[in-house]
């Protein structure tokens, strides 16, 4: 077997192991949350018997490890359980499958993340590479200062400034990004413009600075001096000699930021009233809707692990020592 394939399979196995451990942590953390769903729904007035019966109905009376196994077993088959909300004391059950609650929200989140990534990643790479190329010039300093400024403000601040500028003073884009499944693509893009722009401003600095640093770090290598003494122009030195050896750190920081786009954008969702998965999770925590919370947490974990796995694999396949062993 090719050693790269072997390493990749190894990483995949490690990823699965990490996911397993994370699932235990998620489950235990939620077990430790104070309060009780039954009590919260039925109110302080409910008798202990009613609460107990309600808990039995939801399966909350089972010992934790049984409930964990049921949950994980279901999750493996794509069933994240049934939401607690929609039930009430009167016995009517309008509850929905967790998967049905999460799916449209997740789709929205992934859409926003993809739009942002499609803009932000090429922009950061371009800015990072050019600022390495023209390092210590006015261009480099301007780029650095600007990106640092945007990352230094809290997201909601950037968001409100953009609303003020691009929705209020110069109404180019809508300030509300309320989309649903029936919104056509171009309308969707139009409405998501401001949140995507906000997120781009937030993540570009990190990726751009890392790209710049990774390339500049390599410029001190003897093989760069060699390339220059072979007549390579500055552009060729950077693109052909430094960049191919810099992909591993760049991929890592891109993965980190993409993961953030999926799991960490609740503030931006709130500002623009964008129906993403972050808001769903926050709502679920407030209403103690445990299956939804667990489902969201698990999806976040999968996102993180998957993106980091991809970054790892990029690091491996761009390393000639691993790709072409002796």
């Amino acid at each position: 077997m090719h050693p790269v394939l072997k390493t990749v399979l190894g990483r995949l196995g490690l990823g699965l192991a990490t996911l397993f451990i994370v699932s235990i942590i998620i489950f235990s953390a939620i077990e430790m949350l104070p309060g009780d769903f039954g009590q919260a729904i039925l109110g302080q007035a409910a008798t202990e018997e009613t609460v107990a019966a309600f808990r039995r109905e939801l399966g909350l009376d089972e010992p934790p490890y049984i409930r964990y196994l049921q949950w994980v077993g279901g999750a493996i088959q794509g069933d994240l359980g049934t939401s607690f909300s929609g039930r009430n004391a009167s016995g009517t059950d309008r509850s929905r499958e967790v998967i049905d609650l999460i799916a449209p929200r997740l789709w929205n989140t992934l859409f926003l993340a993809s739009v942002t990534a499609i803009i932000a990643v090429p922009v950061s790479l371009f800015l990072g590479i050019t600022s390495a190329l023209y390092r210590n010039t006015v261009y480099d300093r301007t780029i650095n200062t600007t990106t640092l400024t945007t990352i230094s403000f809290p997201e909601f601040f950037v968001a409100y400034i953009l609303i003020l500028l691009l929705a209020s003073l110069y109404p180019v884009f809508p300030s509300l990004a309320n989309v649903d499944a029936s919104t056509p693509l171009n309308e969707r893009l139009y409405r998501s413009a401001l949140p995507a722009f906000t997120l781009t401003l937030v993540i570009v600095a990190h990726m751009m600075r890392m790209t710049r640093a990774a390339i500049i770090n390599l410029l001190a290598s003897p093989y760069i001096q060699m390339a220059r003494l072979s007549g390579a122009s500055q552009t060729e030195v950077i693109l052909k000699h430094a960049l191919p050896n810099a992909w591993a750190p760049i991929a890592t920081v891109i993965a980190f930021n993409l993961a953030y786009l999926v799991v960490g954008v609740v503030v931006v969702e709130v500002v623009f009233v964008y129906p993403g998965v972050g808001q769903l999770m926050v709502d679920a925590v407030t209403s103690r809707d445990i299956p939804v919370v667990q489902g969201c947490a698990l999806i976040f974990a999968v996102t993180y692990i998957l993106l980091n796995l991809i970054a790892d694999i990029i690091g491996i396949i761009t390393n000639p020592r691993l790709l072409h062993p002796k």
Partner: peptide, 11 residues
């Protein structure tokens, strides 16, 4: 160069 190992681009 003195160190050929370091002076060739690994990629």
């Amino acid at each position: 160069a003195q160190s050929a190992a370091a002076s060739f681009n690994p990629a």
